[in-house]
Simulated assay, not measured.
Amino acid sequence: MISRLIGMALILWLSGCSALQETMDVEKPTVTVEGVSLKSVSTDSMTLLLEVKLDNPNTFELKTVGVDLDLSINKNTVAKISKSDISVTIPAKDSNSIRLPVTLMFDQILKSVEGLPDKNGLDYVVKGDVTINVPVLGDWAVSVDYSGVLSVPKPLEMFF
């Protein structure tokens, strides 16, 4: 008798969880890289700004809880962006952006790029995950995979 009651309670509880998910009609958020721009240049390094756009198709707000991204130049990983303390609110049926500064030493870049003076830009790839907390359902890792070309000024262009 007790095992029947426990079994029925378990069935009701499980059906309640799936009904809750269907009622919430949760859609997976999307994450895209809007681009990488040059923020500043010094004699030995440059700082890039990686802009990541977060889109929330749901009727409730979401929050990011972490970022784990790799930045590669010419197929060589030059930076790992790993932050577990990023908390950005993504409003319901809206979007928000995260701007992540990445400082690269020129020796890192030169090891990755052959013939830098002959190039007008750097081919880059951003791969990884942004972790987003979905109420009741927990944390979801949303994949990022983006490639582009970053325009790099020639040395003379920086001073004129």
Rank of each mutant, 00 (worst) to 15 (best):
Q108M: 06
D55G: 13
S72Q: 14
E27M: 11
N58P: 12
I86K: 00
L20A: 10
Q21F: 09
V125T: 14
D25H: 09
S112D: 12
A79N: 12
K39D: 14
V31K: 03
F60R: 03
L38I: 15
E27T: 13
A19K: 04
V36I: 15
K127F: 01
I98G: 00
V65T: 15
E51M: 04
K83Q: 09
S15N: 04
I86L: 01
V67K: 01
S82V: 04
T64W: 08
S87Y: 12
T77P: 01
K28P: 00
T77S: 02
V125F: 10
S84A: 10
K83P: 00
M24P: 05
R99P: 00
I98C: 00
I98T: 02
L62R: 02
C17R: 13
D94G: 02
S40G: 15
P101L: 08
E61S: 10
A79P: 09
L110N: 04
S45G: 01
P57Y: 06
L62Q: 06
L122S: 05
L38E: 15
K119F: 10
L12T: 12
K83A: 10
D44Y: 09
L49Q: 11
S45N: 05
G121F: 15
K28C: 04
A19W: 09
V125H: 12
S87M: 06
M24F: 06
K80P: 01
E51V: 15
F60C: 07
V113M: 06
G16Q: 11
V26S: 01
L38D: 14
T77C: 00
A92G: 09
S72Y: 04
I109G: 07
I81Y: 05
V65K: 15
M46E: 13
